[in-house]
Amino acid sequence: METQISIPVATRQFLELADFLKAQGDARDPVLAVQDAIDYWLDNASWKPELLRQAQPSNLGYQWKGLFLPDSTEVRMQYKGDWYYAKVKGDKLIYEGEPITPSRLANTVTGTSRNAWRDLWIKRPADAEWLLADDCRAASEQG
């Protein structure tokens, strides 16, 4: 007897598959359809590059003076009760779809000249909570 493992699939997605199979007149058990999909992927991924997700190098990120912000780092600022968010994508800090510097982000949000180190909060991929940029800078200078 072949052993099996369970792979988590969102209930919504599994039900969509079951509905799709029914609508197509396919009487297969959705579990078997998932197994067939895995077999198809294994048979085709080596010659269909669009089936493979390219792993991004871990050295991507934005260098903000002495502080490195890894790819996927989130940056936020609160101003007049609202939060404004930017994100590091690759080697750029992106705000509203456009590259921006941290200083320009703080100044754009407020319409005045601000100290980004004291106004921006950072959450790197490994961080459990948001940290003030100035605190991140001080920690990176210490070690």
Rank of each mutant, 00 (worst) to 15 (best):
I94E: 07
D39H: 10
S46A: 13
W83D: 00
W130D: 00
F68C: 08
D19K: 14
V88L: 05
Y85G: 02
V109G: 01
A37P: 15
I5G: 13
G111C: 03
G25M: 07
I7Y: 13
T108G: 07
Y79P: 09
Q56D: 08
A27D: 15
D29S: 02
L69S: 02
L120N: 05
V88I: 10
D127L: 03
V88M: 05
Y62F: 06
D135F: 11
N107W: 06
E50P: 15
I100A: 10
P125D: 03
S58Q: 05
A45V: 11
M1A: 10
D26A: 12
Q24Y: 13
S58G: 09
V109D: 00
E141N: 13
W47I: 03
Q63A: 14
G25Y: 09
G66A: 10
K22P: 03
K89Y: 15
G143I: 08
V109K: 03
I7C: 13
R137M: 08
F20P: 00
S140W: 08
P99I: 06
R104Q: 15
R124Y: 00
K22S: 09
S72Q: 02
I100N: 05
A126R: 01
G81H: 06
S46E: 06
R28D: 02
R53A: 14
A55V: 04
I122E: 02
P49A: 09
D82Q: 13
W121F: 12
F68G: 02
S113W: 00
A86S: 12
D127Q: 07
A37R: 08
P125Q: 07
W121K: 04
L132G: 12
T73A: 02
K48T: 15
A27C: 10
I122P: 03
A45K: 10
I5L: 10
G111V: 02
W117L: 07
E96T: 10
R28Y: 03
Q78R: 12
Q54L: 14
G143S: 10
K48V: 15
L60N: 11
P99E: 05
G61N: 01
K22Q: 14
Q4H: 13
P125K: 01
A18C: 13
D71H: 14
E141L: 15
S6N: 09
D19H: 14
A23W: 01
D43N: 12
K87Y: 14
M77P: 15
K123N: 02
A86N: 14
D26C: 12
R114F: 11
A18G: 08
W121N: 03
D26E: 07
L21D: 00
G66L: 06
Y95H: 05
E96P: 11
